[in-house]
Simulated assay, not measured.
Amino acid sequence: MADKNESFETKDFGWMVAMSILFLVLVAVCFWLEFSTEWGGYQLEFPQLLGHYGKVEDARDFQAGIKQIWIPKIGVTDRCITCHLGYEWSSVLPATIAEPLKPHPMNDMIAKHEFAKFGCTPCHGGDGAATTIAGAHQGGTGWEDPMLSNALAAQNGLTMNEMIQMRCNFCHRHDVATPGMDEINPAKVLFKKKKCLLCHVVEARGGTTGPELTYEGDRNPELLIFTHVQGEHTMFNWNVQHLTKASAVSPSTAMPDFNFKPEESRALTLMLMSWRRLSYPPEYIPDPEVAAAAMQPSPTSTPTPTPSATPVAR
């Protein structure tokens, strides 16, 4: 029989030891979850890469942790660079390095879109605030802007190049033509040629016979009727078939059948789906005249005729 004078401390000693051990285990688990991240291994490897390619001081100064590009004026918080650490090291690291440490390719177009000013997600899509691969690339419930990928393009009957052009046209929609947008540029010409503004309102201009198209890219596909649509029930496919022959997709529509060629219907659909609501400040919207000038061939690019009869190798 236990001593009646036994202290409560003695009685509870076993429980206190057990609870202390449990607490230490929980603390250890929390530390493990905090530091055994998907990006932890990449951040161990990256300074080794910098040192291997001669950037010893930069490798020594590298600090591990979540990294981000924060641009409040356009609502961008991109932590993509927590994994994609080589994004701005194209002058040092070779393009053969595997993702996610591979440097971002550089060209004239990329040079005009500084990482610090635009971030990653405005061009690539994805959830920039996420710090896991699945969260950044696919997103969670209710998120409708997955990262561009070949799989996503194929799922929607598109190519990666077409998807990229659509995102470019988010900002470049007022350009008469934009370098690199070979699919959408003809659609802008066709839209004017067919006088679509006679029936549709776009940015407060046009007729009201048809639905407004100003932010057609934000339209909810659940509002569309797919009864007469062949193939995948996607918004892109609905628009392509509707533009090809409107009466076949919407028998009661007032829209005439333009019988566009398949490539014309696709181009127009790419353009329409790129018309989305943006809250970018004016300095982010490109000057249409600058884009038009960029489309003109440079005088120095015209080859000078040679009097020699020998063919010139090109």
Rank of each mutant, 00 (worst) to 15 (best):
E222Q: 14
L278D: 05
L278H: 06
R277T: 09
F258L: 12
S252E: 13
P251G: 08
A254W: 06
F258I: 01
N259Q: 04
S252P: 05
S250D: 06
Q241R: 00
L268C: 10
V229L: 03
L272H: 06
S274E: 07
P282V: 02
P256I: 05
D257N: 10
L224I: 10
Y284A: 01
F236L: 08
Q241H: 03
W275H: 15
T234E: 14
A267P: 04
E263Q: 14
K245H: 14
E264M: 12
Q241I: 00
D257H: 00
P281K: 03
Y284Q: 03
Y284T: 03
F258Q: 07
L223G: 13
T227N: 11
M273F: 04
P256C: 04
T234G: 15
S265T: 03
S274N: 07
H233T: 13
E264L: 12
M255D: 05
E263V: 11
K245Q: 14
S274Q: 11
M255L: 10
S279Q: 10
P251S: 08
N259T: 00
V249D: 03
S274H: 09
L243D: 04
S252D: 12
I225G: 09
Q230V: 07
S274L: 09
W275M: 14
G231W: 04
T244W: 04
P281Q: 05
T227W: 07
F236V: 10
N239Y: 15
H228I: 08
W275V: 08
A254E: 08
H233L: 13
E264Y: 13
A248K: 12
E232Q: 12
P281D: 04
T253Q: 01
T234A: 13
T244H: 04
L223V: 12
M235H: 13
D257T: 01
H242R: 14
S279Y: 06
A267S: 09
E232T: 12
S250G: 01
L272K: 09
S274I: 04
I225D: 15
S265L: 00
L268F: 08
K261A: 13
H228D: 11
K245S: 07
N239I: 11
M235W: 10
N259S: 05
A246V: 01
F260G: 02
Q230W: 01
Q241N: 07
E232I: 11
M273H: 05
T227F: 08
F260I: 01
T234P: 13
T269K: 00
Q230D: 09
R277P: 03
L268R: 08
V240M: 05
S252V: 12
S252C: 00
R266Q: 00
I225S: 14
M235V: 09
L270C: 07
V229T: 10
R276S: 10
A248N: 11
H233C: 12
P282C: 02
V249M: 05
